[in-house]
C-alpha cells in the first residue's frame, strides 16, 4: 500500500515470491522451489504486469492512498509472533521427523512418474477444470465488453 505505482507493487510481489522460492530451496524442496521461480516469478508476475499495462491501471491514482505503517507493522508482528510461537511449541515437528515411513526422497523424477502413472486421472480432471475456468473467464470478460459498448 505504500507504493503508488501498481507496476512497482507487482515487481515487489515478484521479489517476495523469489524469497518464498528461496525458503523452499532451503527446505530441500527443490522441485517446488524451482517451479515457484519458473511459474510464479517468471510467468505469473509478468502476467500481472502485462495485465496492469494493458488495462489503464498504470497511472497512479490521484487521491491519497491510506498509508498506515503502524497497523501494518502490528499485524505483521502478530502474525510472526503466532507463527514463531507455534513453530517453537510444536510437538508435530518432532513427531513427523521421527516417522520413518515419510523418509521418501521426493525427487522430480518421482513426482513426474506419480503424475502420469498413479495420479493420471486427477491430472486429466485438472485439465478439464482449467479449460472450464478459461472458458468462464473469457465469457465473463466478453459480457463486460458487450455491456459497455
Amino acid at each position: 500500500m505504500s507504493l503508488r505505482n501498481l507496476v512497482h507493487s507487482a515487481l515487489c510481489l515478484a521479489v517476495s515470491l523469489v524469497g518464498l522460492a528461496l525458503i523452499y530451496l532451503g527446505l530441500d524442496a527443490e522441485f517446488i522451489g524451482w517451479i515457484q521461480i519458473l511459474v510464479y516469478v517468471g510467468a505469473v508476475s509478468i502476467l500481472i504486469v502485462f495485465a496492469i499495462l494493458l488495462t489503464r491501471g498504470t497511472e497512479a491514482p490521484a487521491g491519497r492512498i491510506t498509508f498506515a505503517p503502524w497497523s501494518g507493522l502490528i499485524i505483521a508482528g502478530a502474525v510472526f509472533a503466532t507463527l514463531a510461537w507455534t513453530v517453537i511449541k510444536s510437538k508435530a515437528l518432532t513427531e513427523i521427523t521421527g516417522n520413518p515411513s515419510l523418509d521418501v526422497s521426493f525427487v522430480v523424477k518421482n513426482i513426474g512418474g506419480k503424475l502420469v502413472a498413479e495420479y493420471v486421472l486427477p491430472l486429466q480432471v485438472m485439465g478439464l477444470l482449467l479449460t472450464a475456468a478459461l472458458i468462464g473467464a473469457v465469457i465473463i470478460a466478453l459480457h463486460e465488453r458487450k455491456g459497455l459498448k
Partner: peptide, 26 residues
C-alpha cells in the same frame, strides 16, 4: 476414492459454478 480425486472433482464443480453463477453479467 481418494482425497486427491475428491478435491479435484469438487474443484471442477466449484470452478464451473463460479462462472455459471455470475453468468448474467448485466
Amino acid at each position: 476414492n481418494d482425497l486427491t480425486m475428491m478435491f479435484v472433482s469438487l474443484e471442477l464443480i466449484t470452478v464451473t459454478f463460479y462462472v455459471l453463477n455470475s453468468f448474467q453479467r448485466g
